[in-house]
């Protein structure tokens, strides 16, 4: 997309250990402002661990990290004001309605009443959810929930949004629609950091890093990676890397 050369995330030698197990082994990478950065890896490769550290949910063991221009150790709260996060697990309240969820998260990020209302209306219209506005989250389909969770994660116009396997368990059509939403967010200047293990999704990313056993095994654009590994698709690249 509209990638610039300005780095919005800088990670140098990030290490995270759980006892003797090293989940992240000296990760070093940059994410450029406005790009869609794919963070790939098999289950247990250390993707979620890294994303949690970048979001300020977990302390790194060592390493230098800057997110949205702020240091993760000393300016944690400023980092949080500027990021959105959608976790693997479902993150909206089941027993609240669509609107009540939006109002709660909007309110927490300091949006005013009018702003919350206008953004909700806007959102409902764009997603075609008008009829579901006052339905409980538990009563709407999974695909809708995912789209809504994503919309809530970027409700406060963050600089970066972190998506941790956002399309797990969703049908292909909804997945495609979800990626349209991601493109739209990127188009509006939000940097997208997304983990996935659907390799077709990797093709949609501007740049992709592939993690194997806690290390970054490759990092480049999908085209370059395919060329480098002499592969037809990202799927082949991944299999070559993950199963040497």
């Amino acid at each position: 997309m509209s990638s610039t050369t300005e780095n919005i995330i800088t990670v140098k030698n990030l290490v995270k250990k759980f006892g003797s197990f090293t989940a992240n082994d000296h990760l070093t990478f940059e994410v450029k402002k406005g790009e869609i950065f794919g963070f790939l890896g098999a289950n247990g490769a250390g993707k979620t661990t890294a994303i949690k550290i970048l979001c300020g949910l977990s302390y790194p063991t060592s390493g230098e990290l800057s997110v949205a221009g702020f240091d993760i150790y000393t300016q944690r709260e400023k980092v949080k004001r500027n990021i959105g996060y959608m976790s693997q697990r479902f993150s909206l309240y089941d027993d609240l309605t669509v609107f009540e969820n939006i109002r709660f998260y909007g309110g927490i990020y300091g949006l005013g009443k009018k702003e919350i209302n206008s953004r909700t209306n806007d959102l409902m219209q764009r997603l075609g959810f008008e009829a579901a506005r006052d339905k409980l989250i538990r009563d709407i389909p999974l695909g809708w929930k995912q789209k809504l969770a994503f919309s809530v994660a970027i409700l406060h116009n963050p600089k970066i949004v972190f998506l941790d396997e956002p399309t797990g368990g969703v049908d292909p059509i909804t997945r495609r629609q979800f990626w349209d939403m991601i493109y739209e967010a990127a188009h509006n200047g939000i940097t997208v950091f997304v983990t996935t293990h659907y390799m077709d999704e990797a093709e949609y990313c501007d740049r992709v890093s592939i993690m194997v056993d806690g290390k970054i095994a490759a990092l480049d654009t999908p085209e370059n990676l395919k060329r480098q590994f002499g592969a037809q698709s990202m799927n082949d690249v991944f299999i070559k890397l993950a199963r040497p």
Binding site: K80, G84, R89, Y105
Partner: peptide, 9 residues
């Protein structure tokens, strides 16, 4: 949902 709360300010 606690994670979602914890990434907010």
């Amino acid at each position: 949902t606690i994670e979602q709360i914890n990434v907010t300010p």
